[in-house]
């Protein structure tokens, strides 16, 4: 099997959306377009109860075929890389399951194989996770309540790049922030293979009193399509492109 190119949106937020279309619907749309949506809800280290509205985090990721996690600020770095990896494995497993069903018939999934064969399939999935190309669009909620968490977010993104760049497959990252009064989302970092020291990022922020998570997700989806032509040509050969499951 040839390693393909996986696409993910990683949404970092700390509250519920209160403006524009339903983010769950947009996430489902993204999934159909072959883009997985992962969501991480970031809590204050001192916050001891789960605030209302964060249930949304789980629903968005579920609709987006991705992984969700609600974490305290201090464990953000490790969570960001874990969620990204889990979602990669999940997507690859989905593709492999589809292949298995074509060969072995309906309802046949990795879980239902005898342990011996399962072991072999899992090796293949692991190999693909190591060698596939990956595009991650990071979408950061920069509304007022997130401001003091942004240094941690910056650190976590650097760490994510460190983790993923240890793989043999190539990576592309970009970072967007929302809300933005004019364009809904603001491009912070253009597509780059490495999120190095993110100096000055998040320094000029516009924060209104609203959280348009749905519209922001939609814009993020467009941003995937607006990638340079050379990249889209490569995507054309992508076996994962049409896997809208």
């Amino acid at each position: 099997m040839k390693p393909g190119r996986l696409k993910q949106i990683l949404l970092l937020t700390d509250g519920c959306s209160n403006h524009g279309e339903d983010p769950v619907v947009v996430a489902a749309l993204a999934r159909n377009q072959g883009v997985t949506v992962n969501v991480i809800g970031v809590l204050d280290d001192r916050q001891n109860s789960k605030p209302q509205g964060l249930d949304e985090v789980e629903s968005i990721a579920e609709a987006g075929g991705g992984v969700s996690q609600i974490v305290y600020q201090k464990s953000l770095s490790q969570t960001v890389q874990m969620v990204t990896r889990q979602a990669m494995t999940q997507t690859i497993q989905g593709v492999v399951n589809k292949e298995l069903q074509e060969i072995l018939g309906k309802d046949q999934t990795i879980e239902e194989l005898p342990p011996e064969q399962r072991g072999e399939v899992v090796e293949v999935v692991d190999e693909l996770g190591e060698s596939c190309d990956l595009e991650v669009l990071v979408l950061v909620d920069t509304s007022a309540s997130m401001h003091h968490k942004l240094p941690t977010v910056k650190e976590a993104l650097f760490d994510l790049s460190l983790s993923l760049n240890a793989r043999s497959g190539s990576n592309q990252f970009s970072v967007f922030a929302f809300p933005d009064p004019k364009k809904t989302i603001t491009k912070m970092v253009n597509w780059t293979p490495e999120l190095g020291e993110l100096h000055g990022i998040f320094s000029k922020l516009n924060s209104g009193g609203y959280t348009p998570t749905g519209p922001a997700l939609k814009e993020a989806l467009y941003a995937f399509a607006e990638k340079p032509l050379s990249d889209r040509m490569k995507d054309g050969e992508d076996p994962y492109e049409e896997t809208g499951f």
């Binding site: 990896r85 460190l162 983790s163 993923l164 760049n165 240890a166 793989r167 043999s168």
Partner: peptide
């Protein structure tokens, strides 16, 4: 050897301490 470390615990991870990559 040569692949990416998939699982680590920050305290023991050289990447966390800025002492190198997460390559196995």
């Amino acid at each position: 050897t040569g692949r990416a470390i998939k699982e680590y615990t920050e305290f023991y991870d050289r990447g966390y301490w800025g002492r190198g990559s997460r390559k196995a």
